[in-house]
Amino acid sequence: MGDDDYVYDEESGEWVPAAQLLQKRGAAAQIEVRDAVGNILADGDQVTLIKDLEVKGAGRTLKRGTLIKSIRLTGDPQEIDCKFEGIKGLVLRAEFVRKR
């Protein structure tokens, strides 16, 4: 779309430049995920556990201080997806990790 194209924004009820609407939607699509102490997490970050966590279905407990490498953000601001040896599909709550 060019700079002179205007589109109708249903939220505000106004005609706005297309570039402005795309920028507004892009900012809304970004989810801000924060760890237990308030640091912003991003894909690929390393985190450590701040609490012993019992992993349901795996029959083991991840101890406090365990390093989790290369996390991936999900669509939920409270959950992160990660890999850990021997556990498939591990999803952790952001409130139980701290950015390293």
Score class of each variant (00 low, 15 high):
Met1Gly: 11
Gly2Asp: 14
Asp4Thr: 12
Tyr6Pro: 00
Tyr8Glu: 11
Tyr8Met: 12
Ser12Ile: 10
Gly13Asp: 04
Gly13Trp: 04
Glu14Val: 06
Trp15Gln: 15
Val16Gln: 14
Val16Arg: 15
Pro17Cys: 04
Gln20Cys: 03
Leu21Thr: 00
Leu21Arg: 15
Gln23Asn: 08
Arg25Phe: 11
Gly26Pro: 00
Gly26Trp: 07
Gln30Ser: 11
Glu32Ala: 10
Glu32Phe: 05
Arg34Asp: 00
Arg34Gly: 03
Ala36Ile: 06
Val37Thr: 09
Leu41Arg: 02
Asp43Asn: 14
Asp43Glu: 05
Gly44Tyr: 09
Asp45Val: 02
Thr48Met: 07
Ile50Ser: 02
Ile50Arg: 03
Ile50Asp: 00
Lys51Pro: 00
Lys51Ala: 10
Asp52Ile: 07
Asp52Leu: 09
Leu53Trp: 13
Glu54Val: 13
Lys56Val: 15
Gly57Val: 09
Gly57Asn: 14
Ala58His: 09
Ala58Arg: 13
Thr61Val: 01
Thr61Ser: 11
Leu62Asn: 05
Leu62Pro: 01
Arg64Met: 06
Arg64Cys: 02
Leu67Pro: 05
Leu67Ser: 10
Lys69Ile: 00
Lys69Leu: 10
Ser70Glu: 15
Arg72Ile: 01
Leu73Gly: 04
Leu73Gln: 08
Thr74Gly: 08
Thr74Ser: 15
Gly75Gln: 15
Gly75Phe: 07
Asp76His: 06
Pro77Lys: 13
Glu79Lys: 15
Cys82Ala: 12
Lys83Cys: 02
Glu85Thr: 12
Gly86Tyr: 07
Lys88Cys: 00
Leu90Asn: 07
Arg93Pro: 07
Ala94Lys: 01
Ala94Gln: 00
Ala94Val: 12
Glu95Phe: 09
Glu95Tyr: 12
Val97Ser: 04
Arg98Asn: 09
Lys99Gln: 12
Arg100Asn: 12
Arg100Leu: 08
